[in-house]
Design a binder for these strands. Structure first.
Length: 557
RNA sequence: GGGCUGGUAGCUCAGUUAGGCAGAGCGUCUGGCUUUUAACCAGACGGUCGGGGGUUCAAGUCCCUCCCAGCCCGCCA
């Protein structure tokens, strides 16, 4: 990799002539194009197969979605280039439940504590494959099925066509039979190769873990292999997991190749072989352990070409690592309460190599960035690199490329969310110039969808946009001077002035009555929002029904 | 201790593959009537590109070295 090639000494000079046009041909603004280049360079069979996968433990959080979304963009680029693409996602559900999750998500994606389900039933199932454990919510056929359904639902919400594959089924169908047989037949080679990566691998190591016929747990002690019969003999011994031990039952039995699983280091390359995987993204935790050994095993044990790899950095949430045990997680469903799907897709379209923080308190920043990205696609932003990125990525981020969309700035949408009155929202947005007579109703409707989301954000964050126009007169306690000033302001408003004029008059009135400016604003915010602060008061009042504002300023019910 | 990936304005990030003037948005400040109240407009401020060394006419970009963060180097996935 790190070789210099002095023989190409004057080749770079050709590039120095810049601006001949075809320098751009292989200079993409979008990482997915570069990955697609690598895949095409291998001349893959059709359909091109793109895979992701996770072990179904606990909650499917936003980080898990890298496994689907990163592949999605590559899939879309390849489809655009005329390839047939199959995007699959393996639920690695033959893995044993190793410890109790702290949090679970119900079928709607709501996060619930372990206390809300039958935790005892889960505890008794430690060591068993996820597909052999009942759904804690009692709705689907297993713990694994519940989890897979959640992921699938999230993929649907984001409009990503992904084929869910149960790893357990790959064994049960017999798809894995040739791989297991091959690995066991070449157990010496397998040991030799994996031994380069794991010191624990000794001459007794057998790369197969049967499921105990008696207690149903994954076991680690294989005593004999019978390739002709296609079985292994085993003893169900204790399994050490971190600080804990999951007890084995001592049963001695015989298992077929379908009644057990390969250890992960072999299983992963095995999936590549069985599914014919051409590309797979994985988190940085795999970059140094699983990937090098997986590549080696693929090439030197299974004799297949490993997929094009891509390492993605992890997200943090509000500056902290995603952690279901610490409760620092967010799901796709939760994000879609706050953002349009295209904004979330945009987040995943950004450079995977950069660790990104999703700061919920500054979602407005993310949405602003998306809006700018969108405008860049339509050539409205003077930023060459952003435009280059947008030209490639934007069509895959939105459901449909349309130029007539109107995007209200997120914080402005939050201001509109201070009232429930939809007509008033439209009126305010119109006055600010976001809509005009030519804006189609559909575009108005679509733009207003953001108001609901920004409103939920303001409430969830309880930030400076979390004010609510009060329908009823709030309780108040004002000085006589303030009351007199409010009456005068009411008279002014009654004369039908616009918001800007009202804003000016607020200052004038306060000054005339010798009231502290802050006190007068506070009185206004009390009457209209039952709060100490709020949005630009005069402009806001200018949008409201005049009679309502006058009555409220006069403290009438 | 060894390895991988990052570190660019207060914040979020482009730019690094192929060396060519240090960039954007947001925030901040100032102005937009004699107005501190979060939505508008204009302008300004804002940087030892993590530190240091080297190569080069020229380095955020290439090389060496050090610092910081996350991850991997037991098992498991």
């Amino acid at each position: 990799m790190a070789t210099n090639d002095p023989s190409r000494g004057d080749a770079p000079a050709a590039d120095a002539t810049d601006g001949d046009g075809d320098a751009d041909a292989n200079h993409h603004g979008f990482w997915a194009d570069e990955v697609a280049d690598e895949i095409e360079a291998r001349d893959p069979d059709e359909p091109v197969v793109i895979k992701g996968g996770v072990s179904p433990s606990g909650v499917a959080h936003l980080g898990n979605f890298n496994e689907i979304m990163r592949g999605y963009f590559v899939a879309e680029v390849l489809r655009e280039r005329g390839h047939e693409v199959r995007q699959v996602f393996t639920s690695d559900d033959k893995d044993p439940l190793r410890k109790l999750p702290r949090k679970l998500a119900d079928a709607d994606g709501n996060i619930v504590g372990l206390g809300e389900v039958d935790a005892g039933a889960l505890g008794r199932n430690l060591g068993k494959p996820y597909t052999s454990i009942p759904d804690p919510f009692g709705e689907t056929e297993s713990y694994a099925a519940h989890f897979a359904a959640l992921l699938k639902a999230d993929a649907d919400r984001l409009g990503v066509p992904v084929e869910m594959i149960s790893n357990t089924e790959l064994y049960e169908n017999g798809d894995f039979d040739p791989v297991v047989e091959h690995v066991l037949e070449h157990a010496d080679t397998a040991r030799e190769v994996l031994g380069e990566y794991q010191s624990k691998v000794d001459e007794d190591y057998v790369p197969f873990n049967p499921v105990c016929a008696e207690c149903g747990k994954i076991t680690e002690t294989v005593t004999d292999i019978d390739l002709d019969a296609g079985t292994v003999d085993y003893v169900c011994t204790d399994m050490t997991v971190g600080d804990n031990t999951i007890d084995g039952c001592g049963h001695e039995g015989t298992a077929t190749f379908r009644e057990g699983k390969l250890p992960w280091r072999f299983e992963w390359p095995g999936q590549w072989q069985v599914l014919g995987v051409d590309f797979e993204p994985f988190g940085k935790d795999h970059a140094e352990g699983s990937w090098p050994s997986g590549k080696d095993i693929a090439e030197n044990v299974l004799g297949i070409e490993p997929p094009v790899p891509m390492v993605y950095e992890w997200f943090t949430l509000n500056g902290e690592a995603l952690s279901s045990s610490a409760g620092n997680i967010v799901t796709v469903a939760e994000m879609l309460d706050l953002l349009e799907p295209e904004v979330l897709r945009y987040f995943f379209a950004l450079n995977p190599r950069k660790a990104r923080d999703l700061d919920l308190t500054r979602l407005d920043q993310l949405v602003d960035d998306f809006d700018r990205f969108e405008r860049a696609y339509f050539g409205e932003v003077d930023d060459e690199s952003l435009t280059r990125f947008a030209e490639r990525a934007y069509p895959f981020v939105v459901d449909e490329v349309r130029e007539d969309r109107v995007r209200l700035p997120y914080t402005f949408a939050a201001v509109l969310g201070m009232t429930d009155d939809e007509d008033l929202r439209v009126k305010m947005a119109r006055n600010e110039g976001f809509f005009d007579e030519d804006t189609p109703d559909e575009a108005v409707e679509e733009a207003l969808g953001r108001v609901e989301r920004a409103r939920r954000w303001a409430e969830k964050m309880d930030n400076q946009y979390n004010y609510r126009l009060q329908v009823d007169l709030p309780a108040f306690d004002f000085d006589p001077a303030v009351e007199a000033a409010l009456d005068e302001l009411a008279d002014f408003v009654e004369e039908n002035h616009d918001g800007e004029a009202i804003q000016g008059e607020i200052y004038e009135t306060a000054r005339r009555h010798g009231i502290e400016m802050g006190d007068f604003f506070a009185a206004g915010y009390r009457l209209f929002f039952d709060a100490e602060q709020g949005p630009r008061l005069g402009e806001f009042l200018g949008e409201l029904e005049r009679d309502f504002v006058v009555a409220r300023l006069r403290r009438e019910d």
